[in-house]
Simulated scan of single mutants.
Amino acid sequence: MLAAIRSIIFIPVFYGGSTPIIILAFLVALFSESGTHFMGRLWSRYHYLCARLILGIRVKIEGEIRNEPLLYVFKHESMFETIDLLRIFKKPVVIAKKELLVIPLWGWIAKRHGLLGIDRDGGGAAMRQIIKQARKAVAQGRPIIIFAEGSRAHHGQRPELQTGFAGIYKLMELPLVPVALDSGLVAPRDTFVQKSGVITYAVQDEIEPGLGRDDIRDRVHAAINALND
């Protein structure tokens, strides 16, 4: 009952406070890319502040998050981590489904910030376009982030990785860092009720580029599910 009450309070506070931030971010994004990054981080910090004070959620990072041109692959259990990425990284470039870019106002700002929308049915042409844009970001020293499972899973589930993941890994030729997490324990999908507790991001050992498709798939799948064991 207490978790439900907290969650009901969180919704208007977070989304109501997000509205002026997003409007201001749109105005800033018209003139400044660096300002867009600043506003994205401000919004993410506001989200974490609301989660911390209202919901009683804290984040613990095990290992080191490096703001370098690395390919990060995250476990995906909640909407929480998709927003929190803007706080724990400085200027991340996230590869996500292209449908996110059609969200009014927010989608344009996200694209301006660096979100790369991939067409999962677009085949090789869509993949080449994503890689071209990702390489530009890497040249600027920015990390690339993907949720290789494609959609959120309940904690304990271990869905297979999307087929395009191995192609991105091969073409980017970057060291890969898997990140396991357990956000589904406190902010599960399919319900608005979020519980108090600690979300752990467990940064796993870096994996070198150049591995075969099956090898990289198996190693990453095991690594991002490390907190599910």
Rank of each mutant, 00 (worst) to 15 (best):
119 D>G: 13
110 A>R: 01
127 M>V: 11
136 K>C: 10
110 A>K: 03
108 W>C: 04
120 R>T: 10
113 H>A: 15
106 W>E: 06
112 R>I: 10
123 G>Y: 07
128 R>W: 07
115 L>K: 02
122 G>D: 08
129 Q>P: 09
116 L>S: 06
135 R>S: 09
127 M>Q: 03
111 K>P: 04
121 D>T: 09
129 Q>K: 11
110 A>E: 01
128 R>F: 08
119 D>I: 12
128 R>L: 14
110 A>M: 13
109 I>C: 12
116 L>C: 08
104 P>Y: 06
122 G>V: 05
122 G>L: 05
118 I>Q: 01
131 I>D: 02
135 R>N: 14
135 R>A: 08
125 A>C: 00
133 Q>V: 01
121 D>G: 14
131 I>A: 02
127 M>C: 05
118 I>T: 03
136 K>G: 14
134 A>I: 06
129 Q>L: 05
117 G>I: 07
118 I>L: 13
116 L>R: 00
116 L>K: 01
104 P>Q: 06
111 K>H: 09
115 L>A: 08
134 A>S: 13
115 L>W: 04
114 G>W: 03
115 L>D: 00
136 K>F: 12
122 G>E: 10
136 K>I: 14
132 K>F: 11
130 I>L: 11
106 W>F: 15
133 Q>E: 15
129 Q>C: 00
123 G>D: 11
107 G>W: 07
106 W>Y: 12
115 L>H: 01
123 G>C: 10
117 G>P: 07
127 M>I: 12
127 M>T: 04
121 D>F: 10
128 R>C: 10
128 R>H: 11
134 A>Y: 05
106 W>D: 01
134 A>V: 11
129 Q>E: 14
127 M>K: 02
104 P>S: 06
104 P>T: 05
109 I>G: 07
136 K>R: 14
119 D>Q: 12
132 K>L: 11
125 A>W: 01
124 G>P: 09
120 R>V: 14
130 I>S: 02
104 P>V: 08
115 L>Y: 04
108 W>H: 06
130 I>E: 02
108 W>Y: 10
121 D>N: 12
119 D>E: 13
121 D>I: 01
122 G>K: 00
116 L>W: 05
114 G>M: 06
112 R>W: 09
130 I>C: 06
105 L>R: 00
132 K>M: 08
129 Q>T: 10
106 W>I: 13
114 G>N: 01
122 G>Q: 02
132 K>Y: 07
126 A>H: 00
136 K>E: 15
129 Q>R: 08
134 A>C: 09
120 R>E: 14
110 A>I: 05
112 R>K: 15
134 A>N: 05
134 A>H: 03
124 G>M: 11
135 R>I: 09
107 G>N: 09
113 H>G: 12
